[in-house]
Write a protein that binds this DNA or RNA. Structure first.
Lengths: 207, 207
DNA sequence: CCTACCGATCGGTAGG
DNA sequence: CCTACCGATCGGTAGG
């Protein structure tokens, strides 16, 4: 838990390797080689390989949570309401991913390699995080802004597609973080916003 | 390549284990144990662990391709056009996943563990498959049925969320394959269909 | 499908 | 951060 430069370098190298080959597919010696030291030397800085994974996953989880907090707190812009809240959540989530794809990728894919206790702890936090999306979508449906979609499916649909970014986002690609976040927010809002083909929620207006 | 019962049992067991622990996280002895035989005995039926992965991935790729072919061929129902074609593609994709989540999960997540040649070959097929989604979305935009979204982003957005099913679909869950496919098709179409807030494509109708 | 075994590599420790 | 080393496990082979 001591915050040193070397420790961060280790987690950076491990994030890259876990991202590319997975936790099981990466050896302690692979990480050491990326830092030009011996495998055994790594244990001067970390207590175990699992410990490195945990640091990466736990810190990234906190980043997602903090970004969502900030997004919901500052979402009352020109057009308040569930629509702008959901858009803010999406932009925040995309921002955490584009800010560090490798760590985000490890968080998304390698939490299954955590020890049982840690895996359970992260599972709860992931569910609570996804719950924010469910709640905002539910609010939008109740307000008549969103179509009566299945909240659970819609939240999973959206979050999965955002998380999928870790597989195809390229920092040097055509789409920069800003426009990409806008495109994702646009697709997300379209998917849930009420449209002309949707039946009115409870009362029929007579034109 | 010989199609025996035992071979299928091996691939079934391997699919479950690869799905749960990943390719690298699964040993040959793990697979053997699931079949109540010795690790070395597995080699009477397969040539290598990599060979088992390849069979699973290759067959599943073919299933996705065949399902998409059938979907596009039979999509000219009551309301032809890009909308019904996209919906048909989505239903087909979801169907392949719900039909065998474990194999689908291995296809989606473990193709990175393939040998370089095989990985490249599957990569090309995956891109061609995703191209069908891009094309249909492009057709819809050209026809004025779909909003002018980014085809590449939209296709990735949709396909990723569908593939994400392998992580949360439960055969004994609340949503059965049929309704689930409908919900996914609904969200997908909403995300791309043109709405009241979209500017008209090229000419403004004067009310 | 078994027993017996191969060299290589794994995560990690001892002692400096 | 190093050398030297540990027991365990890895994918796979030999020979039946």
């Amino acid at each position: 838990m001591v915050e040193t430069t070397r420790r961060r370098e280790i987690e950076d190298a491990a994030s890259s390797l876990f991202h590319e080959h997975g936790y099981s597919g990466t050896s302690v010696r692979d990480i050491a080689r990326a830092l030009d030291i011996q495998g055994a030397s790594l244990y001067a800085h970390v207590t175990s390989k699992q410990d490195v994974l945990w640091s990466i996953v736990e810190r990234t989880a906190s980043r997602f949570e903090a970004a969502a907090d900030a997004a919901l707190a500052g979402a009352d812009g020109p057009v308040p309401g569930p629509g702008s809240q959901l858009a803010a959540l999406v932009r925040a989530h995309v921002g955490v991913i584009t800010d560090d794809v490798r760590r985000a990728s490890v968080f998304v894919h390698e939490w299954r390699s955590l020890s049982p206790d840690r895996r359970a702890a992260i599972g709860k936090r992931r569910d609570a995080y996804e719950g924010r999306f469910r709640t905002v979508i539910g609010d939008g449906i109740a307000a008549g802004t969103f179509a009566p979609v299945d909240q659970v499916v819609a939240a999973a649909f959206v979050l999965t597609s955002l998380n999928g970014l870790v597989a195809w986002y390229r920092p040097d690609g055509r789409l920069k973080p800003g426009p990409l976040a806008e495109a994702m927010a646009d697709l997300t809002l379209r998917a849930v916003l009420i449209g002309p083909d949707d039946a009115p929620p409870d009362e029929v207006d007579a034109g």
